[in-house]
Each structure stands twice: as C-alpha cells, then as structure tokens.
Simulated scan of single mutants.
Amino acid sequence: MSTALTDPAPVDAVIIPHYNDPPRLERCLRALMENDIANTEIVVVDNASPVSLDRVRRAFPDVRFITETKKGAAHARNRGVAETTAQRLFFIDADCVPASDWLTIGREIANLADLIGGRVDVFDETPPPRSGAEAFEAVFAFNFRRYIEVQGFSGAGNLLTRRDVFDAIGGFINGVSEDQEWTMRAVSCGYSLIYEDRLRVSHPSRRDWPALKAKWRRTTQEAYQLNGGGLAARLRWVLRGLAMPASAVVHTPKVMSSDKLASTGEVVRAISTLFRLRCQRMVWMLRQAAGGTI
C-alpha cells in the first residue's frame, strides 16, 4: 500500500514530463501509488497539453502538477528539478509503468553510482497477434543495459541521480537526444553511470509502422544533432547510413532466436520490419549528410 505524502522536506523527487496523454499518465501515477512514497514528491510537468488534466489532478491530489510552456521533455525535466528541493531525483516518462518496488530499489542502490539507469521492459497495448512494429520492439526496444555498459549513456525514462550531479553539469538540452547527451555529459565530467536490472519500469510498444517510423525519425534527427555537421562528421554519418541494411542482416539471427516472439508469424513480421526500418534510416541519414531534411 502507498504512504501519504506528508513530509514538508521530501528526500526523493519523481519528475514526470508529460504532453497530451492523460490515460498513460494516469496509469503511470497509479503504479507509482503502489510504491512506498513516504518523503517523496511526485511532480508532473505538463508541456501545455491541449487536453485537460483536471480529471487526473482530482484523482491524484497529492501529486504536484506544473505547466511548462517551453515545448520538449528537456524543458519539462529541468522545470521539474527546479520546482523541487529533494536531493535524490528519479526520472520516469509519463507513458512508463514503474514496478511496485521501483522507489524502494532505487533507495537501496542509490549510493552505488552517481547515475543509475534501470531495466525497461516492453508490453503490448493491443491483443495478439503482434504487428510487425510490436514484434520488432519486443526484440530491440529499450536495451538499457547495452546503452549504459556498451554505449556509455542512459535514457531518462528510468533514471536515478542526485541534485548535486544535476547542479554540477547543468540541465537537459532541448533539440538533441537530451537524455543521451545529458548522461554522456555527466560521464565526461567524471560521474559514474551503472546499469541496475532490479530498477524496473515497463513501456508500451509502438503499435504500428507509422508510430515506429515517427519514433525513429525523431531519434535520427536527434542523433544527427549530436553527430555534428562538419565534413568528417557527415562522412562518418554516410558510412553509418550505408551500413544500415547490412546491420539488418547481422541482427536477423537475434530475431529468429528471440524467446519474446510467440509464433513464426511474429518472427517474419519482426524481420520484415527490421529490414524496412533500417533501409528507411539509411535514406534519412544520407539525406541529412547531404544537407537535406527528413
């Protein structure tokens, strides 16, 4: 059972950026209420959604709702931190569902590193069988262990850090892959980043090709901003783009051997989506390197 928010000086703050998705936000908050929220301030920072949050506000009177008119999750997260005084900061996205022990585990492991990214499982919001997009996401989406231990960054959909770290390196930057840039900036400043499998949240899979395509278009745009626009950087981007179809071949065995897919049909749809997406990304990346838009 949850504990009422009564401490005037919270130890922990949960920062949730939100835009125009009240049902998923409500699902996130209900899951948070299954946690031990003693001495915890939960802050929803809404990016001036066109839909009303009045019903959600009434359902969760102990949650603080703040409006940030500057668009983007980076601005929302920064505003959330500025509105709190807690020294321990939990970041989660509004469409994520935290495990019932998410906060408890976070408190237990908080001293292990300066930044801790956790596990993000994928679940479907539609009944089976899975679409190609859902099957692809079941295999490939949100590999936070690889992000952290191989690539050196974490997403902010499941991230724990401290206020002194945030104050030292500054806030998230809008217009780039803000969580990747922020965590990499922290690591470059000497702060430690680790993966913790017990720190668990879940995220819905993209339902169809348009949703998956939109996700990867945004991701490709943000990644190019981090890549740089100089000649050498653009040449590297061309090579990465040209390698995309080959990477689909390399990753096909991962799909075929995955225990997350329930049928041969799901395997076939996942492989088809894998090749379709990697070829699409190649086209986007070559356009970017040539100075175009995607």
Score class of each variant (00 low, 15 high):
A82I: 07
R234I: 04
A243I: 03
R236H: 10
R236D: 12
V81P: 10
G265T: 03
A9P: 02
C189M: 14
W182H: 03
R64A: 14
P98R: 13
Y191A: 00
F153K: 00
N20Y: 08
A73G: 15
Y195P: 00
Q288Y: 15
T84P: 06
A73T: 08
V122N: 09
D114A: 09
T69W: 07
R77N: 04
A156V: 12
W216K: 00
F142T: 08
D93H: 10
S177T: 02
P17T: 02
R276S: 08
L193Y: 00
S192G: 11
T252Y: 06
E125R: 13
G117E: 06
V201K: 07
Q225G: 14
P253M: 03
W237G: 00
T183N: 02
L160K: 06
R88N: 13
L242Y: 03
I194L: 03
V120E: 02
A31E: 06
G171W: 01
D93A: 08
V176L: 11
L112C: 08
R162F: 09
A211C: 08
M256N: 11
D259M: 04
T264A: 15
P204C: 02
G72M: 06
A86S: 15
A246V: 14
E266C: 09
P210S: 04
L231A: 13
P10I: 05
Q221E: 15
R240Q: 12
D46A: 11
M256L: 15
R198G: 05
W102T: 08
V238T: 02
T220E: 14
P23A: 05
A168H: 12
T84Y: 02
S131H: 02
R146I: 04
V56M: 10
G117T: 01
Q221F: 02
V150K: 13
K215Y: 09
D46P: 07
G152Y: 01
N35R: 07
S100H: 12
M285C: 04
T219A: 14
V267S: 03
F91L: 14
I116F: 01
A233L: 02
R269I: 03
D164A: 05
K215F: 13
P128E: 10
A135Y: 00
N174M: 03
A86F: 10
Q221H: 01
R200M: 09
G132C: 05
E26G: 13
D208M: 06
E137A: 12
L235A: 13
